[in-house]
Design a protein around this nucleic acid. Structure first.
Length: 569
RNA sequence: GCGCCUGUAGCUCAGGGGAUAGAGCAGCGGACUUCUAAUCCGUUAGUCGCAGGUUCGAAUCCUGCCAGGCGUACCA
């Protein structure tokens, strides 16, 4: 809690000759709560004072002896640290009060000041099925979208659909050769995908297919009527299919600006590049040499005149800056495209766009099979829809078995099943590859979303049984926290705002996800040691207010991960 | 070849200069006439890939090596 830190900062600052903000930066949470709740390390002072850290800590301890603050009650030196112990009554009361008053806003800040942040995420390739691989960008991006909103930014979600490029040439060739209207109507994405796979099989035997595809893409770029009508059709049918998945996941985008959206701007981009004199013709193609920066060259236009995706990405970046004047521009795109973004940002820098320093590639590892990577072309892929359906189905079975009388079984099964899939993706560090494992996806015990949701449902159940008149504010009653489990829980709840900030600024929803596991764990410990309904009225009231703030923290936190917290499960 | 990322307990992973390296899963042993046992408590388990270096202090920073992943001019 920030106020506690400020208070300690002001207590120590005059004693050590540092700015109190500097002192606050140095404060850390001790590894063992019996040491204290917030520690000031004396290593930095050792050099200045030419004394060993423990001596300094002792000295500070004697100066602070007998003192206390509003939120802390004593300061005790231990080794090289001086440890502050909170006053559980005031600290607990004020924290619970804050959550009580802020409700769904607890955890939010206004660091962003309403500035725009564009977030390019999900961005599936038209005519390819929505595989589990795509869930990562979708889920991580959506969480960042919500996190930046919580920091007071104006998040702008952009679905940069892969709706342009050579793959459309391939699809057109495949559909013209082998396509059947009726099957396209039936299940467009699945059928287009089959055609795509078939194309790659055949092209291995007959490389001339690739040339044919390139030429069809060229025709598309030139506005050829036949090519364009195929393209429109494929695009529209795919979008309709995606809509159902986004609907299920509760995701909306401000803009569906796919790659094709930038077609009219490509000439301008190429002109800007030419004017800057950083491009050159090579073997008929338009290139930018990045050798001086240790990067491979960039190709803006192929020898057949067709553009490449980096050309469209350049246009997109410029468009986004000109349209949104973003404070930050995030690209939630797989780590395999790291080089692409290094090149993209370098070119923007060479073009003199200073705002490129606010562009960030947020990379993530891939989802792989034990045997190797997934491959759309080879047809080795697991559909996201299937994963989501099976997870919900599994949740439904467990509910049937554990809580057969539950009223809204379907709602709970959806929350738990979808939450499990999302959480599995968000709880580990983005950059690591994930090995796809059905058993793990369908396991709802341990460090999972269900664990957190279960804590939430338990709280709701207690509150329901207590009756609403117990949920009234009372200063005296709320000061009665004393059991270790209560105090640990309060201290954990106090961390939400800083976890939200850390999560957003490091672009790692996993920080928040792991924190929520901690909250649920501390609640469960409390639950098993501190009866609520069976306690005497004041304690009962106090604990109800405590668990009510816990409920709020969990709901707010899961919400920022895009996961819902059912009241019963 | 070169570049980027990863390497921590049997497995999956936290921790990313500071106090004794932590969780979950799996295993073993306990706790439901008591607020939902999708829970809790206890227990077993580690040359933090290897070797040097910087520092009062390194799992954490630097260098080299090893292993795996990804990328590396007409795909995205």
């Amino acid at each position: 809690m920030q106020k506690l830190k400020e208070e300690i900062g002001q207590a120590i600052a005059p004693l050590v000759g540092l700015e109190s903000t500097k002192v606050i930066d140095l404060l850390e949470i001790p590894p063992d709560p019996t040491y204290g709740d917030l520690a000031f390390p004396c290593y930095n002072l050792a050099k200045i004072r030419k004394q060993p850290p423990p001596v300094i800590a002792k000295d500070l301890g004697s100066k602070l002896a007998g003192q206390e603050g509003y939120y802390w009650e004593k300061a005790v030196p231990k080794g090289p640290y001086i440890n502050f112990h909170i006053n559980p009554r005031t600290y607990g009361r004020e924290l619970i009060r804050q959550v009580w008053e802020e409700e769904q806003d607890y955890g939010k800040t206004n660091l962003g000041n309403g500035d725009n942040v564009t977030i390019d995420y999900s961005s599936p390739n038209i005519a390819k099925p929505f595989g589990v691989g795509h869930i990562r960008s979708t889920v991580i991006g959506h969480s960042l979208y919500l996190l930046y909103k919580a920091l007071g930014y104006n998040s702008i979600g952009i679905n940069h659909l892969g709706d342009w490029g050579t793959q459309f040439g391939k699809l057109i060739v495949a559909f013209k050769r082998w396509g059947e209207e009726s099957r396209l109507e039936e299940d467009p994405v699945d059928y287009l995908y089959q055609l795509y796979v078939q194309f790659h099989h055949q092209a291995e035997e007959d490389p001339s297919l690739d040339d044919e595809a390139r030429s069809w893409f060229q025709r598309l770029e030139n506005g050829d009527e036949t090519a364009v009508s195929y393209w429109k059709r494929f695009r529209q049918l795919s979008l309709e299919t995606y809509a159902s998945i986004y609907g299920l996941l509760g995701i909306q985008f401000e803009y569906y600006h796919g790659e094709s959206h930038y077609n009219q701007m490509l000439d301008r981009v190429i002109n800007i590049v030419k004017e800057k004199g950083i491009a050159n013709e090579s073997e008929g193609a338009l290139m930018i040499d990045l050798e001086p920066y240790g990067l491979p060259p960039v190709m803006l236009r192929k020898k057949d005149g067709a553009t490449l995706y980096i050309t469209r990405d350049l246009a997109a970046a410029i468009y986004r800056y000109e349209t949104f004047n973003f404070a930050r521009s995030l690209y939630v795109v797989g780590a395999e495209q790291t080089l692409h973004f290094q090149q993209l940002f370098k070119v923007l820098e060479l073009l003199g766009f200073e705002w490129v320093s606010n562009c960030v590639h947020v990379p993530f590892g891939m989802i792989r099979f034990k045997e190797g990577r997934m491959s759309t072309r080879a047809g080795k892929i697991i559909l996201l829809e299937e994963v989501l359906q099976r997870a919900v189905e599994m949740a439904r079975e467990i509910i049937e078995q554990k809580n057969p009388d539950l009223e809204d079984k379907e709602g709970a099964a959806k929350a738990v099943g979808l939450g499990a899939v999302r959480f599995g993706d968000l709880s580990n560090d983005r950059v690591k590859n994930i090995e796809f494992d059905w058993e793990k996806v369908l396991d709802f015990s341990g460090e999972t979303a269900a664990y957190i949701q279960y804590a939430h449902a338990r709280i709701c159940s207690i509150i329901r049984k207590a009756g609403s008149d117990f949920l009234t504010w009372d200063d005296d009653v709320v000061s009665r926290l004393e059991k270790e489990e209560e105090i640990t829980l309060v201290k954990t709840l106090a961390l939400l705002p800083e976890k939200v900030i850390d999560s957003a600024e490091s672009y790692r929803p996993s920080v928040l996800a792991r924190y929520l596991i901690d909250v649920a764990r501390e609640f469960n410990r409390f639950y098993h040691n501190c009866p609520v309904l069976g306690s005497e009225p004041e304690i009962k009231h106090c604990r109800l207010l405590l668990i009510n703030s816990t409920r709020q923290v969990i709901a707010n936190g899961l919400g920022l991960l895009g996961i819902t917290a059912p009241e019963e499960m």
